[in-house]
Write a protein that binds this DNA or RNA. Structure first.
Length: 884
RNA sequence: GGGAGCUUAGCUCAGUUGGUUUAGAGCAUCUGCCUUACAAGCAGAGGGUCGGGGGUUCGACUCCCUCAGCUCCCACCA
C-alpha cells in the first residue's frame, strides 16, 4: 500500500468514523462480559462544542476505548439536556425576531415552536462529538425531555411528594427578572459589585403623620425599595436608639408612617445601627417581618419594575428608579450623605441578571435526608472523587444544603403534575386521569374541567439527576420497588463519570442522591473532575473575549487526534487547563512522527535469507523489556486516572525509545534488505505501540493498523486487546542504558570537537561494561573497534565516564590537550566536592546510628563509586600531562 | 467573613508513607546539522539555593508553625 508522504487527517478521520459506525462498533448490548459504562454529561441540546466539551469528551473517550480494548463490554451513553432556561430564552429571542411575543402564545403554541427549534438546532453538538472521534453508542442517544425520560421525572416528583419530601410553600426565592423564573440557590453567583450606600433621613412622626424636626439616619443600598418599608429596626441593646422606643417614623417622599421596632438581628456597629425593614424585597427583612407581624408590600413586578403599589416611579426599572429616587431624596432634603460601597450582589447563572429576592409560591424538595445519604456515599468511599481534595468541598456543601427549589416559571420542561381543585386543594398524580380519580375521592362531583394543573415546570437538574438510571430504564426512577430492566441491571452502576467541578453539586451530588433513593446503590464509582479550560493567560474562555477557538476549526487544521493530544497533554485532574495552540501542534507533530516511522518500516525490503545482525538482536531484546516495563507504567497511570501521564509514557517510548533508538539500531544499510526475524519483531512492536496509543489517537492508529497488514472487512484496532506486560529484566535495561550513554557521550565529543559522524574511531573501556551490548555502541556511535583494556596507554584522546565505567577514544590530531585537561580538572573538582559531602554524612555519628542499614549502604556505595571516579580522573589527567 | 487548595527550570506539571549520587518530564531556548522515515525533523547543550522565614529530625521539595502571593468554594451585614 502506498503511503502519502504526509499524514492527512481529514481524509482518514471521516473514512474510519464511518467504518466504525457502519459496523456498529460503538454499540453495546448486555452479555456475559464485564460491563464498563459511562453516561455522558449531557450538553445543552442547543449548545455548540467548546473547548471544555473537547477536554471532557476526550477523557471519556479515552476511558471507554481503553476499557473496550481491555475486553470489557464498553457502553458510552450519549444524549442532551433540555436546559429549560437557556433553551426557552433562545426560543423567546427567536420569536421576538419574528415579531412574536411569548405572552401572545398559548403554552401549546409556544412548545410547538420550541420543539421545532430543538429539532432544527438540537443535536448539533452530538454530530460535533463524532468529529472528535467519540465512540458513543449512538443507538442509545437520549434526551432529557423525550417522553420516556419525562415520565421518569414525573414519577419521581409524585414519589417524593407522596413520601412527604416535596412541598409547596411561599418563600423568599431568587427571582431572575430576565429569565422570569425562580432559580435555585446554586444557580446564583455572588459577585462583589460597586454600588452606593445611601444614608437617608427618616423623620420622626408627630403621631399624626406629620414630620417633627427630629430624624434618624437609615442606610441602604436600595433606596428604590423604601416605599415597601414596613418598619425601621434597631438593636434592643443599642442605647443610642432607646429614645425611639414606641415612636414612628415617616418614609421619605410618600410620608407613610411606619413603626420603630427592636430586633437582635440588627448589628449595632454596622451602618447607623438603624435598619429599614422591607419584608417583600429582602430575605432577612422577611424573617424579621414574620417575627414582628409586619405587613408585606411587594412593589416590584416580575420584570424588576416598580408597580403601582410603589405609588411613585411606577413602571420604572429598579436601577433607573434607584438613580431617580436618589435625586428626589436629595431634593427633598432626605439624604444625609452617600458613600461608595462594594457589596456582594447575586447574579443569575443563566442570564446574568441581578437576582431579585422575591416572595413567591414555589415547590421544594427536602434535602436533609437525601444529602446525608449522599454525603455518606462519598465519605465511605463508595464514590471516589478525583482528585480527592473535592471531598472537603463536597462535605461542606452537603452539610449546609437547603431545600431545593425545583419549580421554574417556564414552559420548556416537565410540567409539574400537581392539580388544583376549585377549593384550592391539590392532588399530585402522574397523569391527569389519575389526578381526576384522586380528586373525585375528595369530591365525586368533580370533572376534568375542574382541575387546573400547576403551570410551572421542573428544574432541569430534576431530570438530569436521574440520568444514569433513566437512560437505561425509564420506569425505575420514582419506583424504587420495581425490578430493574435488563439494561439497568447490567449497566448500573456506571463506572466512571468525567465532569467539571462546577457541577459537582448541581449534578453529581444529586445523581448520588437519586441513586441512593431509587437503586440503593451509587450511580458511579469514580468521579473524575477536570479543570476549567482557560487560555494561556489564565482567562476563562468566553465568547466576549474571543479567546475560545472553535474546536472544529482546530480539528480541520490539525486533525482530531492532534486536538485530543493537545488537550490531554496539559490536563492533570482538577487543575485548570491552560490551553495553547502549541500543544495541539505538538499533537500534530506526534502524528507526523508515527506516520513517518511507519513509512520507514513499510518501505523496507525484508528477506529470510539475511542473517540477523548483532545490533538488531540486542535491539529486539532490549525493546521487549522496555515495552513491558512501559505497559506496566501506563496501566498504573490509568488505574490512578493519570491520563496525561499515561499519554506521556507512551509518547516517550514511541518517539524516544522506538524511533530514536530502536529503529536506528535495526535499520538496514542503504539499499539492503532487513532480516525477516527483526522485521517481524519490528512490526509486532509497532502494532503494540499503536494499540497502546489508540484510546488517545483513534484515527491515525486505525489507519496504520489497517495499512500494516491485510485486514479483513470488519476488523478494527478498536477491539484489539491492550498489550500485556511480560516479565522484564532490569539488568537488560540497565545494560542498554550504559550503551546508550556511551553513544551519547561519543556523539557529544564529536560535536564538541567538530568530528564528522562518518569519521570512525576506536573505543577503549576500563571497568565493568556489558560487552554483549558493544554492537549497540558500534552501530550508533560508529566506532571501528571496542575493547576492554587495563590501561588506556599514552595516546592522546578524550576520556569520559559512563556511570562508573571509564571510557576513552584515541583522537590523535583532534584533541586540544589543554582543553581536555581543563575539562577533566573540572570534573575532578566536582567529584571531590561530592565525595566530601558523602563523607561528611558518613562521619556523622548520629547518621550512622539512626539511619537505616539500606541508606547507609547506599552512602557507602556512593563513596566507593566516587573514589573510583576520582582515581580515574586523576590517572587521565596524569596521562595527558605526560603527553604534553 | 468562613473554608479548601496551590506556590518546584522561561511555560505547563511529576515528585508516591522524609533517605539511589548536588531534584525530574514535556514544551520552549541555545549550538551544530537539508545524515537515503520525518526540518512538523536529527544530534548535542544550557537552565532550578523546590515562594520567604523559623522549627522537628542524623537527614526536609516532602512533616509542623509563620509570613507573602495566587486560585477556587461557601456566605443575603442592611
Amino acid at each position: 500500500m502506498e503511503l502519502s508522504a504526509k499524514y492527512n487527517p481529514s481524509e482518514v478521520e471521516d473514512k474510519w468514523y464511518a467504518y466504525w459506525q457502519d459496523h456498529k462498533f460503538f454499540h453495546s448490548e448486555p452479555d456475559s462480559r464485564e460491563p464498563y459504562t459511562i453516561v455522558i454529561p449531557p450538553p445543552n441540546v442547543t449548545g455548540i462544542l467548546h473547548m471544555g466539551h473537547v477536554l471532557n469528551n476526550t477523557l471519556n473517550d479515552v476511558l471507554i476505548r481503553k476499557a473496550r480494548m481491555d475486553g470489557k463490554n464498553a457502553c458510552w451513553v450519549p444524549g442532551t439536556d433540555h436546559a429549560s432556561i437557556a433553551t426557552e430564552s433562545k426560543v423567546v429571542a427567536k420569536l421576538k425576531g419574528m415579531g412574536i411575543s411569548k405572552e401572545d402564545l398559548t403554552r401549546e403554541e409556544f412548545l410547538k415552536h420550541a420543539w421545532e427549534w430543538k429539532e432544527e438546532h438540537g443535536g448539533i453538538i452530538l454530530s460535533q462529538l463524532r468529529k472528535l472521534g467519540c465512540s458513543c453508542d449512538w443507538d442509545r442517544t437520549k434526551f432529557t425531555m423525550e417522553p420516556e425520560l419525562s415520565k421518569a421525572v414525573i414519577n419521581t416528583f409524585v414519589y417524593f411528594y407522596k413520601k412527604g419530601l416535596i412541598y409547596r410553600g411561599v418563600r423568599m426565592v431568587n427571582w431572575d427578572p430576565v429569565g422570569l423564573t425562580a432559580v435555585s440557590d446554586e444557580e446564583v453567583n455572588h459577585k462583589d459589585t460597586a454600588s452606593k450606600f445611601y444614608h437617608m433621613k427618616y423623620f420622626i412622626s408627630d403621631g399624626n403623620g406629620n414630620p417633627t424636626d427630629k430624624y434618624i439616619v437609615v442606610a441602604t443600598t436600595r433606596p428604590e425599595t423604601i416605599m415597601a418599608d414596613a418598619a425601621v429596626c434597631v438593636n434592643p441593646n443599642d442605647e443610642r436608639h432607646h429614645w425611639l422606643k414606641g415612636k414612628k417614623v415617616l418614609i421619605p417622599l410618600i410620608n407613610k408612617e411606619i413603626p420603630i421596632i427592636e430586633d437582635d438581628y440588627v448589628e449595632m456597629d454596622f451602618g447607623t445601627g438603624c435598619l429599614k425593614v422591607t419584608p417583600a424585597h429582602d430575605a432577612h427583612d422577611y424573617e424579621i417581618g414574620l417575627r414582628h407581624n409586619l405587613p408585606v408590600l411587594d412593589i416590584i413586578d416580575d420584570h424588576g419594575r416598580l408597580n403601582e403599589k410603589a405609588q411613585i416611579l411606577v413602571g420604572e426599572d429598579r436601577f433607573d428608579a434607584r438613580n431617580k429616587i436618589a435625586k428626589m431624596l436629595e431634593e427633598a432634603g432626605n439624604i444625609d450623605h452617600i458613600e461608595d460601597y462594594t457589596s456582594p450582589i447575586g447574579y443569575s447563572e443563566r442570564t446574568n441578571a441581578v437576582i431579585e429576592p422575591k416572595l413567591s409560591a414555589q415547590w421544594f424538595l427536602k434535602m436533609e435526608d437525601l444529602a446525608a445519604m449522599a454525603l455518606d456515599s462519598v465519605e465511605s468511599g463508595n464514590v471516589k472523587l478525583i482528585p480527592d481534595k473535592y471531598r472537603n468541598t463536597y462535605r461542606h456543601w452537603m452539610e449546609t444544603v437547603r431545600d431545593w427549589c425545583i419549580s421554574r416559571q417556564l414552559w420548556w420542561g416537565q410540567q409539574i403534575p400537581a392539580y388544583y381543585l376549585p377549593d384550592g386543594k391539590v392532588v399530585v398524580e402522574a397523569t391527569p386521569e389519575a389526578a381526576l380519580k384522586a380528586a373525585q375521592a375528595i369530591d365525586p362531583a368533580l370533572g376534568m374541567d375542574d382541575l387546573r394543573q400547576d403551570p410551572d415546570v421542573l428544574d432541569t437538574w430534576f431530570s438530569s439527576w436521574l440520568w444514569p438510571i433513566s437512560v437505561f430504564d425509564s420506569n425505575k426512577a420514582g419506583h424504587p420497588e420495581a425490578e430493574p430492566n435488563s439494561d439497568l441491571a447490567y449497566y448500573y452502576p456506571t463506572n466512571d463519570l468525567v465532569t467539571g467541578p462546577d457541577i459537582l453539586f448541581f449534578w453529581v451530588a444529586r445523581m448520588i442522591m437519586a441513586g441512593d433513593e431509587f437503586m440503593k446503590e451509587v450511580p458511579f464509582r469514580n468521579v473524575y473532575l477536570t479543570g476549567i479550560v482557560r487560555d494561556k493567560l489564565g482567562r476563562k474562555m468566553s465568547k466576549t473575549l474571543g479567546n475560545s477557538p472553535d474546536p472544529l476549526d482546530l480539528i480541520a487544521k490539525y486533525g482530531a487526534d492532534a486536538v485530543r493530544i493537545g488537550m490531554l497533554l496539559c490536563s492533570s485532574a482538577g487543575n485548570d487547563i491552560f490551553y495553547d495552540e502549541s500543544q495541539v501542534e505538538q499533537g500534530r507533530n506526534f502524528c507526523g512522527k508515527i506516520w513517518n516511522s511507519f513509512r520507514l518500516i513499510s518501505g523496507w525490503e525484508h528477506s529470510a535469507g539475511v542473517e540477523t545482525p548483532e545490533a538488531a538482536k540486542l535491539a529486539v531484546k532490549w525493546f521487549e523489556n522496555r515495552l513491558s516495563q512501559t505497559i506496566e507504567l501506563v496501566e498504573d497511570h490509568y488505574s490512578k486516572f493519570r491520563i496525561s501521564d499515561a499519554l506521556m509514557a507512551i509518547y516517550k517510548i514511541f518517539w524516544d525509545d522506538f524511533c530514536a533508538w530502536y529503529l536506528e539500531l535495526v535499520k538496514p544499510a542503504y539499499g539492503c534488505a532487513i532480516d525477516e526475524t527483526t522485521y517481524q519483531a519490528t512490526l509486532g512492536f509497532f502494532e503494540a505501540l499503536l494499540k497502546m496509543i489508540h484510546p488517545v489517537m483513534p484515527f491515525i492508529t486505525e489507519e496504520l493498523w489497517q495499512a500494516m497488514a491485510d485486514r479483513k472487512e470488519g476488523e478494527t484496532i478498536m477491539y484489539q486487546p491492550t498489550p500485556k506486560a511480560g516479565a522484564w529484566e532490569a539488568c537488560v535495561l540497565d545494560s542498554f542504558d550504559l550503551a546508550r550513554e556511551a553513544v551519547m557521550s561519543i556523539r557529544s565529543i564529536r560535536q564538541q570537537k567538530n568530528i564528522s559522524p562518518k569519521e570512525q574511531f576506536a573505543l577503549k573501556i576500563k571497568g565493568d561494561f556489558p560487552m554483549e551490548f558493544a554492537a549497540v555502541v558500534a552501530k550508533l556511535a560508529n566506532t571501528s573497534s571496542i575493547e576492554k583494556v587495563a590501561d588506556f596507554g599514552q595516546d592522546s584522546g578524550a576520556s569520559f565516564m559512563v556511570k562508573t565505567v571509564e571510557m576513552f577514544v584515541p583522537l590523535a590530531g583532534f584533541v586540544n590537550v589543554e582543553e581536555e585537561l581543563a575539562k577533566l580538572r573540572k570534573d575532578l573538582e566536582y567529584q571531590k566536592k561530592f565525595l566530601e559531602n558523602v563523607r561528611k554524612k558518613l562521619s556523622n555519628e548520629s547518621f550512622v546510628a539512626h539511619a537505616p542499614e539500606k541508606v547507609i549502604a547506599v552512602e557507602r556505595q556512593k563513596e566507593a563509586d566516587s573514589l573510583s571516579k576520582i582515581e580515574s580522573y586523576e590517572s587521565a589527567i596524569k596521562a595527558l600531562e605526560n603527553n604534553k
